[in-house]
Computed example of a mutant assay.
Amino acid sequence: MFGRKTQDSDTVVRLIASQLRRDISVGVLAPDTKLKIDELRQRYGGSAHSFREALTLLASEGIVEASAQRGFRVASATQSDLEDISRLRAEIESLGLGWSIKHGDLRWEGEVLAAFHTYSKLCMQTDADRQAFAIEWDEAGRHFHTTLVAACRSPRLIGFQDRLFTQSRRFRYAALVEGSIDLAAETRGLGEVVEATLSRDADRACELLSNQILGALTR
């Protein structure tokens, strides 16, 4: 009975965290916004305890900042933040892709192809209506990049990659809506990454992926 209660509470926390994470990613909760638990409860529903747990979880992901004196607030999103996140993403994802190419099997290759197919299709749809498909596009991009490193045999690297991608989502979403992402060019670039990956050309695949991620700094 107690185990079920704990499990239900954990589910509520994850759901709240998911909603807050999405609203931070799409700018509904803007950078540096103070996150007052009473106001959040009125907006989303849920207990004060659940929101504290959810905000603590998001703080561990780096998209919320916690202070004993000032409570919680949305993390900043400056150009310096983007540069730091992008450079780390380029290093971590390239490393993970290299290890995945070394260890990945045919099933992993199929998953990479499927994830890229979904993402490329959503890039085409999103290019026609960036507001309508932005969230689906973002999720498909996250899944594709996660799949690239999924066979690296390092849970810690996978966790770090996921955290960095989560931190990058606000910048990607803003760039998409502002029209500064060339979705056709991104699709072509990632297609080259996939081609090199399936050819098991780790050096080329990692270089292409790194360049693709660092392209965010020149938009």
Rank of each mutant, 00 (worst) to 15 (best):
A114N: 11
S18E: 11
R170H: 12
L55S: 10
L217Y: 12
R153M: 02
L190W: 05
D23M: 04
S76Q: 13
A140W: 02
L82N: 06
N211G: 14
L15G: 04
T6L: 08
R21I: 00
D81W: 05
I16N: 11
K121E: 13
L190M: 12
A184R: 13
A150S: 15
L164T: 14
A132D: 04
F165R: 02
V149K: 00
S100V: 02
H49V: 13
S60A: 15
R43E: 14
A134S: 15
L88Q: 15
T166R: 11
A75W: 08
S9V: 04
D81M: 04
S94C: 03
K5H: 10
Q212R: 13
L164C: 06
T11Y: 11
Y173R: 03
A17G: 05
A128F: 09
S60Q: 14
G71F: 08
E178N: 13
I213L: 15
S86M: 07
A150R: 09
I16W: 07
R170W: 09
L57T: 14
D23S: 04
L29M: 07
G141M: 01
E109F: 05
D81Q: 11
A59K: 12
S154R: 02
F144E: 00
Q212N: 10
E139Q: 11
R130I: 00
A150I: 05
V112F: 07
L122A: 06
A196L: 00
E186V: 02
Q19T: 09
I213F: 06
N211V: 06
F51E: 05
L88N: 14
P155C: 01
D32V: 09
L157C: 04
L157T: 09
G104D: 06
L57M: 13
R153F: 03
E109P: 01
V177R: 15
W137C: 00
I63F: 12
E39W: 09
T56L: 13
G215V: 02
A30L: 10
E93N: 10
D81C: 03
L122E: 13
R89G: 10
L198C: 02
D201P: 01
D138K: 07
R156I: 02
S67P: 10
S154D: 15
R22Q: 07
L198E: 07
A132P: 01
S86H: 04
R153T: 03
S199Q: 14
V13P: 04
S120L: 00
L209N: 07
L190E: 09
D10T: 03
A54L: 04
F72S: 05
S25E: 11
I92L: 14
S9D: 08
K34H: 15
A205C: 01
I181Y: 05
E192C: 00
K102F: 04
A17N: 08
V194E: 08
T146E: 13
Q7D: 09
W99Q: 06
G110Y: 10
S80E: 15
L40Y: 12
L122W: 09
L57D: 15
T126D: 05
T33M: 12
T147W: 03
R204I: 01
T197M: 00
D162N: 12
H143Q: 11
L82K: 11
F160K: 01
R170G: 06
A75T: 12
S50Y: 09
L164V: 14
S67L: 03
